[in-house]
Design a binder for these strands. Structure first.
Lengths: 256, 256
DNA sequence: TAGTGGTCTAGACCACACT
DNA sequence: GTGTGGTCTAGACCACTAC
């Protein structure tokens, strides 16, 4: 990409740098390719490392770059579209490796916000932890809150916790026949436990999908799923995923 | 909140600071209240200003804080739920002040990614710019791409551009009778023009909602809407918005 | 003009992944 | 070990808002 000189403009350096790097990524780099390290890049553009990092952070937020400590900065592949809306409750997992994988299940009191949605008081609920894997990579971590009253026939013989218990809860919930869903999406930052499952650092940007599942007039369960915001594009609606990512589009109209 | 001493732990200072501040926000501050300035806060916690700012950035990303240059840092109100899925095409605006407001309309070639979705080549399309206002605040900026072939009856007498033209295009599109939609959500950063409309700085985190509108078997229009990620919670589904934000929940289980 | 957050610098050290 | 990105510091100046 050569030694580029930043002309003086009334625009933050890091923002201009972001644009320059973005264009360089389009023209000079292939997906997966490793960029020069931050110290070299900073020197090449004649800025402090902190400024260079600010530009890289932007590009990472936009899903263009992937940075790993001890390894380096690589060009990220286009975001993967993950369906959120339809056929969500193939609870049992569906084809192996392409859906939700139960990890654990415990019984504890739900956080008050979830308890309010479930209309339960301090009564403990089943908390199922699941991981969503796509193309061999963990893209989401979920906590599913199921009140004991929603799954009355849950066998007491099964394991009281762990993946086996998780599958039992899912099976009972499936038998219930869910009637509808209600969903919100917002930006959040990964908690330490989610970050670990998603192979990210704590505080990494995530898309938080909160789903209410309805059955027989009430809220049967609540799910809080955190998706990696850097690698995921959530898809909704009747047809399949859009085949073109927004990033490719942003590249075109870089009004900067 | 008092002068707090950061005990030495194997956890980044800014992350610990984020937790401490988050708890202080819950207990000691009301919505809209102004925090001490960054230099004071940094001194109070015995860290460099850059470190303090890293913590504030996290909290702003989570929608807990709002920072404005020249003014100060205030406690943000809970995120506002904005419906994305249903009754989206009350194209004409609906109740004044509570929906989309046409701003402008021009005719130009769509960016290639959009063109690919529309199955148009280099042929120019109508580009309608709209702003979504909720509670008196701009929460989203949209570009709606409508191929000329989708609105053949568009009067050539109307203004060739501007808000009047925008309304004409919307009206014609509405007459078409849209059959379905297809939607994706992903994280992005605000371009300069969008940032200005949303009263944010360039690069601010936004939720990018890309919608395909179908009519008579083809894609009649494509919309790219950027929502303020700090203040918005996108809602989908049959029923109304969830009345409880995820943030309140995160506050509970601060595994940190 | 005073005070705020936003940008930028030039260092230092640390945690982690490879070899 | 060596090299990478992640954290942190102690300054400086700028852009903006409000008085």
């Amino acid at each position: 990409m050569g030694t580029t000189q930043l002309e003086s403009v009334q625009e933050p350096k890091y923002w201009h740098l972001r644009t320059v790097l973005s264009e360089a990524l389009d023209s000079d780099f292939a997906v997966g390719e490793i960029l020069p390290n931050e110290r070299d890049l900073a020197a090449r553009f004649g800025v402090a490392r902190a400024t260079l990092r600010q530009a890289l952070e932007q590009l990472e937020l936009e899903g263009r770059l992937q940075r790993r400590r001890g390894v380096g900065t690589t060009v990220a592949p286009p975001r993967v579209g993950v369906a959120v809306s339809t056929a969500q409750h193939e609870w049992t997992g569906g084809v192996s490796g392409e859906a939700w994988q139960p990890v654990d299940c415990v019984s504890e009191v739900a956080p008050t916000a979830v308890a309010a949605m479930l209309r339960t008081g301090g009564e403990p609920v089943h908390v199922v932890r699941r991981i969503r894997v796509t193309h061999g990579q963990a893209v989401a971590a979920e906590l599913l809150y199921v009140p004991a009253s929603s799954v009355p026939d849950l066998s007491a013989i099964d394991a009281p916790s762990g993946p086996v218990r998780a599958r039992s809860v899912m099976r009972e919930l499936h038998r219930l026949g869910l009637e509808g869903q209600d969903r919100t999406v917002e930006l959040g930052s990964a908690r330490a436990d989610d970050a670990k499952e998603l192979d990210r650092l704590p505080g990494a940007p995530v898309l938080v999908v909160t789903t209410r599942y309805f059955a027989s007039g009430g809220t049967a369960a609540v799910s809080v799923a955190t998706y990696r915001a850097d690698t995921c594009r959530l898809t909704f609606g009747d047809s399949g995923a859009l085949e073109i990512s927004h990033d490719e589009q942003q590249q075109e109209r870089q009004a900067s």
